[in-house]
Nucleic acid binder design. Sequence first.
DNA 1: TTAATAGTGTCTTTGAGACATTATACT
DNA 2: AGTATAATGTCTCAAAGACACTATTAA
Lengths: 279, 279
Amino acid sequence: MDGIGDSESFLAAYDPRAYDPIAVTVDVVALTIRDAQLQVLLVRRGEQPQAGSWALPGGFVRPLIGPDGERTEEDLAQTAARELAEEAGPQLRATHLEQLGSYGTPGRDPRMRVVSVAYLAFAPEMPEATPGTDAADAQWVPVSALGLSPTGGPVTRSVTQRPGTTRPLAFDHAQILAAGVERARAKLEYTPLATAFVREPFTISDLREVYETVWAEKLHAGNFHRKVLSVPGFVESTGDQTESGGPRGGPRAKLYRRGDATLLHPALLRPTSEEAARP
Amino acid sequence: MDGIGDSESFLAAYDPRAYDPIAVTVDVVALTIRDAQLQVLLVRRGEQPQAGSWALPGGFVRPLIGPDGERTEEDLAQTAARELAEEAGPQLRATHLEQLGSYGTPGRDPRMRVVSVAYLAFAPEMPEATPGTDAADAQWVPVSALGLSPTGGPVTRSVTQRPGTTRPLAFDHAQILAAGVERARAKLEYTPLATAFVREPFTISDLREVYETVWAEKLHAGNFHRKVLSVPGFVESTGDQTESGGPRGGPRAKLYRRGDATLLHPALLRPTSEEAARP
DNA sequence: TTAATAGTGTCTTTGAGACATTATACT
DNA sequence: AGTATAATGTCTCAAAGACACTATTAA
């Protein structure tokens, strides 16, 4: 239950400040597709512990002190959105934000008990994070460069930050990132969220590139095309087409915007999803 | 990111006890099937606020003080398992426990900022919660009796606790419960978790009753039977069969145990899952 | 002219679902 | 006997995937 326990004595004895406090943070796994790669927004830690390591953007949940000194409190999702805007620059407008999970294993932060509520954000392709702002230390990094183990367990490889300088992700952020990537892969199957990675209007090929990049699988262009158009409400034609053909030739493509479906029926299943089902 | 922010000044200024503390609780949505109904374990709140209301079992996350006075800390999932054992009695052995989500909207608890990490548990049919123990105030309640709105929003109907006494769920627990039920329904489609609601060995009909109860849909017995056996690793034959036929006749059924699959391929989709896809 | 791409057509196989059928066991 | 259930068989339709093909555009 929330709040107080079952016994009156506990209520009487309970003083929130008498216990070791538990800190609550919000961390964000922000994914985008840049250079035909799935990339995640990371920030450089300037402070101990793990100074110099890359970490997920995020921060403590605490009351905000306004200019008038008045205090307001944010929803957890609002906190996630604000952290993202602060650390990636205001030009990042995530098209999707959902809760990923919470991480509270004792010892995951060496200073105190910290429970992190992780959020997952999808954004269309972004220009480089702008140095000179709050986001000076933020950078998009290809997920493949992080060498995640499938389980998100201990990371053996690491980020190449500058020539000769590599470090693994701070805390248990590799595990959180792995969970975010897997969630993204699964959600492309059953939801129209692939459209959150592209700007409108988009072509069916744009959408296929999203699937191929996130799933790390080549898809059959013809079958994919017919499949997307056959799912009710996935995409909606604008009536227009691209100004020109592709960079290496080909006809001009029809343009689409997001449809009104919230789930894909039938779903677009991953080609290899079968192998993962058995031990 | 976890822990301290980007600026040195913040580190210097930060004293965890200087801020209004945030409490972290763990709440459990424990589901089972009793009397051919989906039921949830609820406890009666003895204290204010919301004294007398039904609530999800749960409690604060805080260090445990052992008999020697030494302190140990639990993982969030361990906390959930312990709360469940304390409030439902030790004979409840949940066969599945997973994190459901976290709820931290300001004001959801009138006393202070509380972030609740909700867990979802599945258990096979249990005897009535044992009065006279810690679980004296715990009770299995049919989910259908709680009149959940589809979104988990404000509840209009309420629990009939004793003749003439009805109350809605405390705090935002109706919303958490609704999320748990929807998660359970979805998970039956893609995972073998229906087996977590039955004891081994079980018959295909036992499994079908689980699906019919959780989904609140009648399924075609013949097609269901063939389908379950066609999914690799869903169930595994024991070679035995039931001692006798059903209560109203029929042949004796073959017995099965859980298979080794972690995902169902192909999935067992809900008959009506299509309608929910469009607004 | 060559190559690459958008979009469509066709065929095969798999699976879902409706329905029928047989055998078994309870009343 | 009559009825309910377990388990299997058959048929139809939808959908996935492999492959072919045409039309269009860039280099």
